[in-house]
Design a protein around this nucleic acid. Structure first.
Lengths: 148, 148
DNA sequence: ATCATACTGAAAACCGTTCGCAATCCCAGA
DNA sequence: TCTGGGATTGCGAACGGTTTTCAGTATGAT
């Protein structure tokens, strides 16, 4: 069965090897933001003969083909998500590591305006919010020592 | 002569060694966002016997003491700036690498609101805008291939 | 001045990522 | 369907930024 991303790859004219098929499948099924190691872990479960180097190479390939997008969440390793048309950003739950995506047209407009005021045209941007759930934010939220 | 940051370090009760004094001086005089290697380069000019390991250690120390702040501009290495009371963000000129700081109370409020709507309390956040100058944005700005 | 303690330099270890190379695979063309 | 040759792979080595180890040194409280 050909996965969503595999179809996309073929559309883009990428040579479809067994490894790329497996990685595409893994990424199609992922609903989180896995890093390379995690993608490899999942890929190996489908076909044990996939090396981490190939995962690295394939992620870069898919990124260049704009099939996936790299997300730098400041934890020192690259994470990935499927490429989407709309710009969105991430709220990271510092307690659990959960990542919540959100979009805000107003925010986009405001950034656009700020850049313009500074004499610049935006070619890219990223916003990350680190937070703790409101309900249990009372205890150690104040001196939560994060190194984002 | 004791530099601004050196005074701050003493206030915080940090043991002031020769190396820390020099690094504090370098950071006090910096008006840009140097990475560790750059700080080391400048420090060595004042006292050649400072090792890069000490710079790494001192930067971490000063960061933990909230004397300086680490800025991750997505270029794979840590950059630093003096800690400030107000939250500000960075606009990076992708042509020249120039970094422009800016602050926007409205932006802060909007982020606060967004996080709140998602049920979160903000403990940290960062926004980076990558852009090109408006005046010469016409040529290759469209397909500027950045990997931020 | 003394001394325990914290700090330093140098080199090795680390971690995520990329590269070099020989072996292997994919697929356009026959 | 078979084949040839460029693209892709696995492995291990290399890489760049950062941290650590360890023996030697400097600091500042006494």
């Amino acid at each position: 069965m050909t996965s969503r991303l595999e179809a996309l790859c073929m559309e883009k004219g990428l040579k479809m090897t067994g490894q790329r098929r497996v990685i595409s499948q893994v990424l199609s099924e992922a609903d989180d933001h896995p890093d390379v190691e995690e993608v490899h872990r999942r890929a190996v479960q489908i076909d044990p003969r996939i090396s981490i180097a190939t995962v690295y190479r394939t992620m870069r390939l898919l990124e260049d083909a704009q099939v996936i997008e790299r997300v730098d969440l400041g934890d020192g390793r690259a994470r990935y998500e499927e490429a989407t048309a709309d710009h969105h950003h991430h709220l990271i739950d510092t307690r659990t590591g959960r990542i919540i995506e959100f979009a805000s047209p107003e925010l986009e407009a405001m950034k656009e305006r700020i850049a313009h005021e500074l004499g610049y045209k935006i070619v890219g941007h990223r916003l990350e919010i680190y937070g703790v759930p409101l309900d249990d934010a009372g205890d150690d939220a104040q001196d939560e020592e994060e190194r984002p």
